[in-house]
Design a protein around this nucleic acid. Structure first.
Length: 466
RNA sequence: GUUCCCAUCGUCUAGAGGCCUAGGACAUUACCCUUUCACGGUAAGUACCGGGGUUCGAAUCCCCGUGGGAACGCCA
């Protein structure tokens, strides 16, 4: 295959959401797989809605996911001269023409068409045609530039996801390529850029399928090669509903905040709409090695947070303890919890890392090691009974005599229980409540060891004398 | 309304005419492990939208229907 060049071309009107992230991921992976070039292009020609904050949000999202581009980011607003030149060329070549129809006239036309239940479209009244007499151009009046779309035949392409798609040219109208203020429009900029940037594969959302025939016609009018297209179907929300700013669409950065690891999000997204046999868990290197356009699903996919959670749990278990420790320190510090003078955070993490599915859950789970817990009255009443307190008092004595090492600590708990004629849980659960403020925890001997003698004894005392 | 797209377990998916009495994963349920809660292990239930063709044979190919979606902007 010739040098592969793909691009991700978001418009900076909001954050990078999950759908955009997947599009970027697939474009990126495809380029990487073939040793090609991945280009980032910011489509900011809509001055009204584009913001620098949104540009930054997109950049941040891609950076977090580790999707780095080889060229760009290019900004369409900085290429205005180029667009203008191409428009002039097309006007001169007769592949585009000036249209003086006013907005009012256009609106009226559309209204009529709608009444007649027709597809709303431009009627070609200013389109030059051999033997056709155009109205005289109003001098000084504003005009738009329209592309002279072929009127007969079909446009078609072999979509790498959806297969062959054909459109009758008769279905297409002469779309605007330059507004009355002279600024170029989306379909036009895309074509010029894809041509200038020598894009070989356009991987994008399938909401662009209907733009594709227009873009192909334009490309052909420009004498440019037509890239391959791969249209990805959309991602639905967890509830099966379409994602929108109003409903369910969240920034990928929100996932970071919620305690997801980028490798989990990447892995999840990779698997959403693409497959490699039965493989579920794989690194991004593996993904790049395996990725192809042939195994992309043509139908829409519903986002499933539970599966993401499962993957995230997996990656938390795999995470480097030093990194995880630092990350936890940061997250706890955000809640005003100091970890520096408490138990070694890495040892605490080892106890909890396989019991949670997000970093936030992990932070919640371990915070009792650093902050004295206040078990709810109900918990106290249920677990810190007189019998239990008696056992804890005995245990306190036994523990204080212990070498602080897991096997010996476990023995101490067991012996205390049997000496009091109690079952193991009858001691271990009150002990958990005393130490951590909750009746469940990892293996109690490990908790004792990691929490450390001083803290353990203090917390038991607090319960006994509190 | 017109054009285009899509259709396998609740969800993500495997499946390129016989390997499919349809496989894997998440979720669910049961059991095992166990000092609790998890992790882990084992097992179970659950799907080819409907109807016609083509074929010796169809989840796979074709047509129709139904359902869902997208696009029809001087937005991208």
């Amino acid at each position: 295959m010739a040098q592969v060049r793909t691009r991700f071309a978001p418009s900076p009107t909001g954050f990078l959401h999950i759908g955009g992230a997947r599009t970027a991921l697939f474009s990126w992976a495809f380029a990487r797989h073939y040793g090609g070039t991945f280009i980032l292009r910011i489509e900011d020609t809509d001055l009204e809605r584009s913001t620098p904050e949104a540009v930054q949000a997109i950049l941040d999202g891609m950076h977090w996911l580790g999707l780095s581009c080889d060229e760009g980011p290019f900004y369409q607003t900085r290429r205005m001269e180029r667009y203008k030149q191409v428009i002039d060329d097309m006007l001169a070549a007769g592949t585009a023409y000036r249209c003086y129809m006013t907005r009012e006239e256009l609106d009226a036309l559309r209204a009529e068409q709608e009444i007649r239940k027709e597809k709303p479209r431009y009627d070609g009244r200013w389109r030059p045609e051999a033997g056709k007499i155009l109205p005289p151009s109003p001098v000084g009046a504003p005009f738009v530039v329209r592309f002279r779309n072929p009127t007969t035949g079909v446009v078609s392409w072999d979509d790498r996801v959806k297969g062959r798609i054909e459109f009758e040219n008769a279905e297409l109208d002469d779309f605007i390529i330059a507004r009355s203020d002279g600024s170029p429009t989306y379909n036009f900029c895309v074509v010029v850029d894809d041509r200038d940037m020598a894009i070989t594969h356009v991987i994008r959302g399938d909401d662009h399928v209907n733009n594709t025939p227009r873009q192909i016609n334009l490309l052909q009018a420009l004498g440019a090669p037509v890239p391959r297209y791969a249209h990805l179907s959309m991602i639905l929300g967890d509830d099966g509903q379409k994602l929108s700013k109003r409903h369910g669409a969240v920034s990928v950065m929100q996932y970071e905040e919620d305690g997801y690891l980028p490798e989990a999000v990447l892995n999840y997204l990779a698997r959403l709409g693409w497959s490699h046999g039965d493989d579920e868990i794989f690194s991004s290197e593996q993904f790049v090695a395996w990725f192809d356009l042939d195994h992309i699903t043509a139908s829409a996919a519903q986002f499933n947070t539970e599966k993401l959670n499962w993957l995230n749990a997996h990656y938390i278990r795999q995470a480097d303890p030093h990194w995880l420790g630092a990350e936890m320190g940061k997250r706890l510090a955000c809640n005003g919890i100091v970890t520096a003078d408490g138990p070694d955070i890495r040892r605490v993490l080892v106890l909890y890392r396989d019991r949670v599915s997000t970093l936030n859950e992990l932070a919640d789970a371990i915070h009792s090691f650093y902050v004295v817990p206040h078990p709810a009255a109900e918990l106290r009443a249920q677990h810190l009974t007189e019998t239990a307190l008696g056992a804890l008092a005995a245990l306190r004595e036994n523990l204080s005599a212990c070498v602080w090492q897991v096997a010996e600590l476990g023995q101490a708990v067991k012996q205390t229980a049997s000496a009091a004629g109690l079952k193991m849980p009858q001691v271990a659960i009150p002990l958990r409540v005393a130490l951590l403020g909750m009746p469940q925890s990892p293996s109690i001997d490990s908790v004792l060891e990691v929490m450390g003698r001083e803290r353990v004894l203090q917390r038991i005392d607090a319960v006994l004398h509190g």
